[in-house]
Design a protein around this nucleic acid. Structure first.
Lengths: 226, 226
DNA sequence: CGCCTGGATGGCACGTTGTGCCAATAAGGC
DNA sequence: GCCTTATTGGCACAACGTGCCATCCAGGCG
């Protein structure tokens, strides 16, 4: 029942991604404002009408690219061992998802940077995070099975999502490289630690969480840049 | 130099607000999707062209209304006494700005609720908070004059803004009244406390902040509803 | 009083966005 | 090979948002 998606569905996803890459290249080159939907469609080899069957808003054409990282993040979190304290699992998966695994990932981050600098894509960026936050909420809810306060779960999800968002926006606005001080995983770890430090949710799901400063995933990184 | 704005400017603002109210009524009644810009313009007694001189996007016509609360919030914070610990000042002004002062404010909150339920106005809502966060950042920066870490200021602003946003969204999605348990100020106080609990920024600006649970503005409210 | 300058307004044309509808076509299961 | 289903393209169309120009109105000046 929860098997792999149907063939046609996977073909749709592939097309979707191809359009996304085409759109990202055009947006990065000449800006989203100056790029018409027809242009994207032509470059992707489809008709305008078909383009709007894949994306209801022109700017959303790059959403699959912007969302990929966040998707990976909550997937990693969902897979992470249940014994791991939630807060640490959150930070580890965030750092890992922000660390480029191969050359393709590095290139993706450079695209992300130019897209984030385009004010016209703000709305799409926000929508991506909104969707990410929702997915995160259900994963968090799974890990706190008993009657955890839904508001606290929501706050935790909001805080964690905000951490990622701020980290990436900060990085995109800077000229920092994709690794090392000022990189997404560096900023991500710092933001995540600060924003999730005071949340009550953790104590209830993992009493073992130490009170003192503990070794977390980000400590494996080079020292931060402040 | 920083005197009151020019006469024409104030007339512009008045017109702006009038259009906003007109648009809000129409959006609340029939949804933003089904409301055309021409309709709003006609109802406000102006031409379509003039409408687009006041708002560059149709949905933004209600932004002045949605932004009023946040504006009040950071204004209150800016005025609050400097001796007050920052975190407490933040929470107090938030609670105060979320408490309806008169019948007009109550009505405004009901409008806000219907507007927040309209998915088409999501973008505007996000933009309003984005602007609010930016204003908050400069107010926070003023209160932490020496070389405070800009990233921490930004995180504090993001956390506080997220608290307000979540509180209002939660309330709008519920059927809770405008005062008492589940009300914006109730939720706002809870969200603000949790999300700002762990931030490092506070300790540096107000060493006097007690570590134990302290009496804050929200304790004057009826018990929360969980 | 007439003149003139600057800002707000309205009307119009135009390119673009996004959608409903229908016919053509390709894909996948039997 | 057939049949069902989904995808695609073309077309028309309402709505969006902007550039351009003509008009109107307030207020300062000779």
């Amino acid at each position: 029942m929860t098997g792999r998606p149907t063939l046609t569905q996977r073909r749709r996803d592939a097309t979707r991604l191809e359009i996304a890459r085409t759109a990202a290249a055009l947006f990065a080159e000449q800006g989203a404002e100056a790029t018409t939907a027809e242009e994207i469609a032509a470059a992707a080899g489809i008709s305008l009408r078909t383009f709007y069957r894949y994306f209801s808003v022109k700017e959303d054409a790059v959403a699959p690219l912007l969302a990929a990282g966040g998707q990976r993040w909550v997937d990693l979190l969902a897979e992470s061992p249940a014994e791991l304290p939630l807060r640490e699992a959150l930070e580890r998966s965030a750092v890992e998802s922000l660390t480029p695994a191969d050359d393709g990932a590095v290139e993706a981050m450079h695209w992300t940077r130019s897209l984030l600098r385009d004010p016209r894509l703000d709305g799409t960026w926000q929508r991506v995070h909104s969707a990410s936050e929702e997915r995160l909420r259900s994963v968090l809810a799974d890990r706190c099975p008993e009657g955890a306060d839904p508001l606290e779960i929501r706050l935790a999800a909001a805080a964690a999502t905000a951490a990622i968002r701020v980290a990436l926006e900060q990085w995109a606005a800077s000229e920092a490289p994709v690794t090392g001080p000022g990189s997404p995983q560096d900023l991500g770890a710092r933001c995540m630690r600060e924003l999730t430090a005071g949340l009550r949710l953790w104590g209830r799901t993992a009493e073992a969480w130490p009170h003192g400063r503990s070794r977390t995933a980000a400590d494996q990184l080079p020292p931060s840049s402040r």
